[in-house]
Design a protein around this nucleic acid. Structure first.
Length: 857
RNA sequence: GCCGAUGUGGCGAAAUGGCAGACGCAACGGACUUAAAAUCCGUUGGGCUUAAUAGGCCCGUGUGGGUUCGAGUCCCGCCAUCGGCACCA
């Protein structure tokens, strides 16, 4: 495709002109309450994109897919009389800039600045109507000051189970507040990635490898900052209810939080000593307690040290070492092959006083439940496999319904061999035995979650430093964390010569010797926050980005995050890759801030839509190695931004995965060129001028109909985000208005209305043509057109006539024709006569204005 | 294994339970042109019948059943693809 080919219409002149004009006049600024141009009579609409990480590679065609959708909505809502908040910013802390710094010594701030400039100019080239006055950058001290401030709120609060919400730590009556803070320090087995030199959150580890880079990750105990997200597990599940999210994303979140109901049961260790250790297990099936024939502790379980017998120590020690050496990857790869060793200890089953052996095995995870299980091999696949391997007894305690194989049956049935609950169906048996345990103080009903607390510190440079110092205790031995005062914010990262991780687990900030010292007896926390921190609340900052008194002004927050629904943002569009992490973390922070009374909504995102990923022309995922990446700049050079936008929307349903096609872009570009030539014509000297066919004439009845049908369809389709069919309808409109032999004129009023409809999709072209038609004011200031049903109704309709469900003929009838009349007319048709004579007519179904179905034997 | 999504022409796709394939791409034919590009017009799911691209008939939305006058659409079973989770007790 030669680039010197003539442009189908002069988009290369039109587009930059309008972009400059929008910029200079700040046409898309959405004023806050209190600003001069604010109109309180208008309703608000907050439409948000997931803000990007400004990478060095620039935009790819996936970014603008969601951005175009939200831009159409934003432009449409403005014309519908809403105050629209449509902002953009940069999630700019993170690994690539830091790794670039390690390689080149260039400060990440410089890299970030260059990348932001590139992204911004690319976005502007597409003509998005962002309110650039609200641009934010998570790495800007004026921004992360408030990220740190929010951390202080989390640090300075605790979760009150009685009220089921976070409260200021001052209201905590216990002895040691540090035990209950929502941000706390713990020695935990973390995901350590040697290659990246940092720990990672569970969520950032995929198949035992780092999500970023794919480097191996191992378990290692380290002292880390944690956020008590588990306190919100219940609410994070329950409050999904009121949100307009795709069901799939909701269930992903529910799944991740992983609620299960059951009981905790205590088993006493059978040792002669009276000090009596206990093993507490979690089970979802307390009704199978009589079937417990052995127990298993996670190898790392702290009780193991206390109960192992002399003679079993060597094998236990060996097994533990072997397990510890395994990475998560190996542990899952070997998942199917059960291993374990006997501890030599026995426990007593509380329901029948039976002595059962205690084993350790790595199929029991320290991180889930209590890190210990009662094994019921008859009714649990894993236990059964283990029992068979080590010849442990198997006892059936549930009778399956029907004639299913009882051993290995894991469903609900009837309790047997279980004196207390014999004969009861499983659900009832669970209730009864749980009550029985509770009465005797042997256990209690319990709810357990897969969700772990959020590992919140990273051993990196390019992130928000913690607003925390470590202070020597009077005894001179211990050091204790203390939050900085609000007025000491922001804590800005120190400049470094060398950004490399130390490799020891000590963060790179340790190299800034001067910076570390906070005061005479206090040194700074050296970890930084994970990249998620900045994106947990950016949507709030957009409401009031300049505020230097508060993270967001109260009035602005109430206004933009307002409304009658639980979530404040009216529409949030982004990729599914954030289905769990970002969306869960942001909801968590929102709830903490809500509980503490800082904001007005319990949920951030009322309506969520995921755009599907765009594949390469070959139907494969776009990647450098496949060489199938499409660069938006190239597309815009060749076809213009409007064609780019329209093609992205015309490809198919927004939420669907779909392959790119340059031919498709060309097709859409042809459509836009037809719009151009409908109104403009080229004169002898090759100049574009207004077409003489465009005249102030009345519309024909047919034109009237198609115009109103188009208004109706496009309006409905924008509301339901069905942009592909909206564009189809506009194509139909244009095809119908192209001058045919006979109709030589193009009614100017229809063109003006159409340009308004087209404006959200192709803002440059429609603005230019609007101006060329000498229309009043700016197109962006127009009201969205309404349609009149009366133009859509025809006097006559074609009615399909079926015999036994097959279309055999059709008949034109007046719209007013009644059922009887239609029936009569249909049966009178010669063709129908022919097909029905000699047959008995069983039934005639009449759907007015649509069809008749004659049912014969 | 569990959860979720998706299966419609050569391709992207469209269709409140009521004419399957709108719109676009590609392909083919034609107009304009010395020619090409661009543009415009027409044809285009498969098959049978027919002199006929008139007319007529049959089949067709992954697959097998069901509900219904009528199913791409609703219900049940199965298959395939994609995404997520996965020794979660």
């Amino acid at each position: 495709m030669s680039s010197e080919r003539r442009k189908p219409y002069p988009f290369d002149q039109i587009e930059p002109r309008w972009q400059t004009l929008w910029d200079e006049r700040e046409i898309f600024h959405g004023p806050n309450p209190g600003e001069k141009s604010f109109d309180a009579a208008k309703p608000k609409f907050y439409v948000l994109d997931m803000f990007p990480y400004p990478s060095g590679a620039g935009l790819h065609v996936g970014h603008p897919e969601g951005y175009t959708a939200t831009d159409i909505i934003a432009r449409y809502k403005r014309m519908r009389g809403f105050n629209v908040l449509h902002p953009m910013g940069w999630d700019a802390f993170g690994l690539p800039a830091e790794q670039y710094a390690i390689k080149t010594g260039q400060h990440p701030e410089l890299t970030t600045r260059a990348n932001v400039a590139k992204f911004k100019s690319q976005l502007k080239r597409i003509g998005f109507s962002y309110d650039w006055q609200r641009e934010i950058n998570t790495t800007d001290p004026r921004y992360f000051k408030w990220t740190q401030w929010i951390f202080l709120q989390i640090y300075n609060s605790w979760f009150n189970l009685k009220t089921n919400k976070a409260e200021p730590i001052a209201t905590y009556r216990g002895k040691n507040p540090d035990e209950v803070r929502l941000a706390y320090v713990a020695d935990v087995a973390v995901n350590w990635c040697q290659e990246l030199g940092t720990v990672l959150a569970n969520e950032e580890v995929v198949d035992g490898k780092s999500e970023v880079g794919g480097f191996p990750v191992v378990r290692r105990p380290m002292r880390q900052w944690m956020l008590r997200i588990t306190a919100y597990a219940e609410r994070l599940i329950n409050e999904l209810e009121g949100l307009d999210w795709p069901e799939g994303i909701k269930s992903l979140q529910r799944n991740w939080i992983g609620r299960s109901e059951g009981a905790e049961v205590d088993f006493k260790i059978d040792k002669s000593e009276p000090d009596g250790h206990q093993i507490r297990v979690f089970t979802t099936r307390p009704d199978t307690l009589y079937g417990a024939t052995y127990m298993v502790l996670a190898p790392e379980h702290s009780l193991v040290d206390l109960i192992v017998t002399e003679e079993q120590w060597p094998s236990v020690r060996e097994y533990r070492e072997k397990t510890a050496r395994k990475s998560d990857l190996e542990r899952t790869e070997l998942a199917k092959d059960k291993t374990g060793v006997f501890t030599g200890a026995f426990a007593v089953n509380p329901v029948n006083e039976e002595r059962i052996p205690v084993w350790i095995a790595d199929y029991v995870l320290l991180g889930y439940g209590t890190g210990a299980i009662m094994a019921v091999p008859a009714h649990d696949e894993r236990d059964l496999e283990f029992a068979r391997k080590f010849n442990l007894p198997v006892r059936q305690v549930v009778q399956p319904p029907g004639d299913e194989e009882p051993i290995g049956f894991v469903g609900d049935g009837i309790a047997i061999n279980s004196p207390i609950i014999n004969g009861l169906p499983s659900r009832e048996a669970i209730r009864k035995i749980t009550a029985w345990l509770e009465e005797r103080d042997l256990g209690k009903g319990a709810i357990n979650y897969k969700l772990r607390d959020w590992l919140f510190s990273r051993q990196r440079y390019w992130g928000e430093p913690f607003p925390v110092v470590w202070q020597s205790e009077p005894d001179g031995q211990h050091r204790k964390h203390r939050a900085l005062d609000e007025n000491e914010l922001p804590v800005v990262p120190p400049p470094l010569e060398d950004y490399k991780p130390t490799g020891t687990g000590e963060p790179p900030l340790a190299k800034a010797k001067d910076w570390i010292r906070h005061s005479k007896n206090a040194t700074r926390e050296l970890n930084v926050m994970p990249q998620w921190a900045g994106s947990c609340w950016y949507y709030l900052r957009f409401c009031d980005p300049e505020n230097d008194q508060r993270f967001v002004g109260e009035k602005a927050e109430k206004y933009w995050m307002g409304g009658s629904k639980p979530g404040g943002i009216d529409l949030y569009v982004g990729g599914t890759e954030h289905a769990v992490l970002h969306l869960l973390y942001a909801r968590f922070w929102q709830k903490v801030l809500f509980d503490l009374g800082h904001i007005s909504k319990p949920e951030p995102f009322q309506r969520l839509v995921n755009q599907g990923i765009i594949l390469g022309e070959d139907g494969q995922k776009m990647s450098k190695s496949r060489g199938n990446i499409v660069n938006p700049d190239d597309v815009i050079d060749q076809y213009g931004a409007d064609a780019f936008r329209c093609y992205e929307m015309f490809m198919g349903p927004l939420e669907q995965m779909k392959p790119w096609s340059m031919r498709g872009v060309e097709g859409v570009s042809r459509f836009l060129a037809r719009v151009w030539r409908l109104i403009m014509t080229e004169n002898q000297s090759g100049q574009w001028e207004l077409s003489p066919a465009v005249q102030d004439v009345d519309l024909t009845k047919a034109q009237q109909k198609i115009l109103h049908a188009t208004i109706k369809k496009v309006t409905g389709d924008i509301e339901s985000l069905s942009f592909n069919t909206a564009i189809s309808q506009m194509m139909i409109f244009v095809n119908a208005f192209i001058p045919q032999r006979g109709t030589e004129t193009i009614p100017i009023s229809a063109m003006r209305t159409f340009l308004v409809l087209l404006n959200p999709f192709a803002p440059h072209l429609s603005s230019e043509l609007w101006e060329n038609l000498k229309s009043p004011g700016q197109i962006t200031a127009q009201n969205w057109p309404g349609y009149d049903e009366k133009f859509l109704i025809e006097d006559e309709v074609e009615i399909v006539v079926q015999v036994n469900g097959k279309v055999r003929d059709r008949v034109r009838m007046s719209i007013q024709a009644g059922e009887e009349e239609i029936k009569k007319a249909a049966l009178a048709l010669p063709k129908i006569q022919e097909l029905t004579t000699g047959k008995r007519i069983l039934k005639v179904v009449v759907v007015p204005k649509k069809l008749v179905n004659v049912v014969v034997e």
